[in-house]
Design a protein around this nucleic acid. Sequence first.
DNA 1: TAAGCTAAGTGATTGAAATCACGAGAAATG
DNA 2: CATTTCTCGTGATTTCAATCACTTAGCTTA
Lengths: 228, 228
Amino acid sequence: MTKCQNCRHAGKHGFCSLGEDAKAFMDTNSVTMEYPRGSVLFREGDRPSAAFVLCSGKVKVSASSREGRTMILRIADAGDVLGLSAALTNGDHEVTVEVLEPCRARVLPLKFLHNLLRDYPDASLGAAKVLAVDYRAAFDEARLVSLPGSPAGRVARLILDWAAEAKKNSAAFVTMTLTHEEVASMTATTRETVTRTLSKMRKEKVISTHGVALTVLQPRVLEQMSAC
Amino acid sequence: MTKCQNCRHAGKHGFCSLGEDAKAFMDTNSVTMEYPRGSVLFREGDRPSAAFVLCSGKVKVSASSREGRTMILRIADAGDVLGLSAALTNGDHEVTVEVLEPCRARVLPLKFLHNLLRDYPDASLGAAKVLAVDYRAAFDEARLVSLPGSPAGRVARLILDWAAEAKKNSAAFVTMTLTHEEVASMTATTRETVTRTLSKMRKEKVISTHGVALTVLQPRVLEQMSAC
DNA sequence: TAAGCTAAGTGATTGAAATCACGAGAAATG
DNA sequence: CATTTCTCGTGATTTCAATCACTTAGCTTA
């Protein structure tokens, strides 16, 4: 049986770095669930019933307008906590969370979550840190979409962000598993523009791609594009 | 001397609804400061030295690119807490906070803040709620900029948000103290487009303005514009 | 292996908003 | 109160990305 007490994400994220007793409390009061690709943890507008701690896999966090326009806020992975802001503010979920790569997640029912926060001070501090991460993701998305003048600039910025992330994990290249459509949703543009922008970057040797592997050849040029 | 213990915002916001002992601790360990219009509490990139709890007045929370492009995240007022996410994540400030209307603010030095969070469980839960508010503001901004297709739509959406806010305070109209330039910074567009959009709305009797007072005449039309 | 489906690439067209440029009015400032 | 500095309003021009409309390529799955 999977337990929080021997989780290797310990220390990295808000709810994975709790004290032993809080973790034991989590182990006895929550269950681990498996979710296949395509399943939805919760939808925008849903009344929250639980928060989720991702143990493995990747999920897409998005919001959309009635007209079908979609904004992808971020791609979350192991250690990230989903649905906490709605749980804390007693409001409905403001985002939809959909599984991209098969996931294992710890499910924390609302009532249990509130008890956890009430009884374990490090849990509420952990919650604050989780919220800080959520905030940062939303802020970065707002910044990404607002600041660079052109769609091409936003795509450039996104690639730079990915490259920085890849570097942190000491990877030589970026693994781009998103479709152009999804990239468009993260950069407030259209699929065609993403395709064209990437084509142009390839032609001008600013990036190179082999399948899902994307390598940044001239970061300076991307910087310049994204700043304009 | 101004004290948190007899603050009338009690209950409304994260740090204004602490227990008596936590408030007493705040009163003895932090000071109230006055800031005139135009002063800056902190700047993007600054290393944080304190968090601020607004007692009165209004401030502008923004971020900008080197090229001078500016994004206004939100206008904060009484009860809001500024600079908490940077304090909690041990990172630099990600935003600039500038005073719009003369402010009184409680200044919480970092060291004191950490002690407060460590020793008073309701303070860390309060911090989590503050972060949830920050998150919501950033999320709403991202949504505002990403989802409506056109600049005109974004301006429409912003006016609707203001109108909802005004209604909550049972005001008959929206008091718009921002310049067109600032509205442009909130909607990722240009000053001219804001001017033209508002002119058009006035001409088509969708809104009406008398000085800073803005009245929404046809909310349905605004809804439609913002959704397109 | 063929059919069917989704993703990616690309051209043509067009329209909406950025940009540039200027003037009038309001408000701050000395 | 005179002057300088913001703010707002508008026209003319241009550009660049959205949209429409196909084709091509790569994967499923029947």
